[in-house]
Design a protein around this nucleic acid. Sequence first.
DNA 1: ATGCATGCAAACTCTTTGCAAACGC
DNA 2: GCGTTTGCAAAGAGTTTGCATGCAT
Lengths: 152, 152
Amino acid sequence: MSDERTITFTNALRQAGLRLTPQRLAICRALANHPSHPTAAELFEQLRADFPTLSLATVYTTLSTLLALGLIHDLGSAGDGTLHYDPDTEPHVNLICTRCHQISDLGDETLAAVSQRVARRSGYEILGARIAYYGICPTCAKHSSRGASGRR
Amino acid sequence: MSDERTITFTNALRQAGLRLTPQRLAICRALANHPSHPTAAELFEQLRADFPTLSLATVYTTLSTLLALGLIHDLGSAGDGTLHYDPDTEPHVNLICTRCHQISDLGDETLAAVSQRVARRSGYEILGARIAYYGICPTCAKHSSRGASGRR
DNA sequence: ATGCATGCAAACTCTTTGCAAACGC
DNA sequence: GCGTTTGCAAAGAGTTTGCATGCAT
């Protein structure tokens, strides 16, 4: 699968002078192969099976480390009160359902043009992008029709 | 200034069958005239002068209400651990400095095209957008050159 | 062998909730 | 007057931190 991405992660860690512990490797691997936009707790639960002693604190620490190295992005909360991370640092659109709080992705060629304009017009040194559209996903739209729901 | 926007807010509250309390009016007004992307705590501090008895809980509740009505947007955290809100629901780009955590805006005509494509291709009923580019703002870039900083 | 990283638990911060009093409608 | 909303305080949740032990280099 995306073992390449795992290698990218681990190489970056080594280059930063950080130790490649089994925990870090596992977290990198889990992120690289994760199909979605996990939270710290989700990664923790997933890795718990293989690392019974793994601590949630370690997951948080490692995520912060990877974030600081720019290997992953912080999506902020999806309305569910917890922070989601995105292992895909390429510019893409996040689709966030305000009903089920699920996040899915969407690529768009027009985005590259937008990114270039943003960089040029803002004077920012762009490090990454978080592009999120909020709405009701087709599945939720089918299932029911609750009124506007609060957060969390 | 944007008294129009204040009126939009208050009208929406009335239409939703909610009472127009002084607190809600003040919060709507503060949001409508706010130049940036305030947090609950910032609004609370700002309004405290005029409403000594105002409670932070009320600010949170009112923000949730306005959010549910779609009158404001939830920007999530800007890397500072607190939730920021955006009184401007028109599609625009948020520029977030990963160093000073300040958020500024940028309009772009190309965005309208992106939004349309997103809606068409995703099948989502788009309720709003959060488009954020992370980077170092020109001011911070000038001032110094600290290494990658953690969150909060 | 040398420290950096982990794990545990406690601390901290932000946000939400319960309930009695107050007030808009 | 009725029922929602406020204010206070305490609870709840997510995230971070301190310190002793363990492990990658």
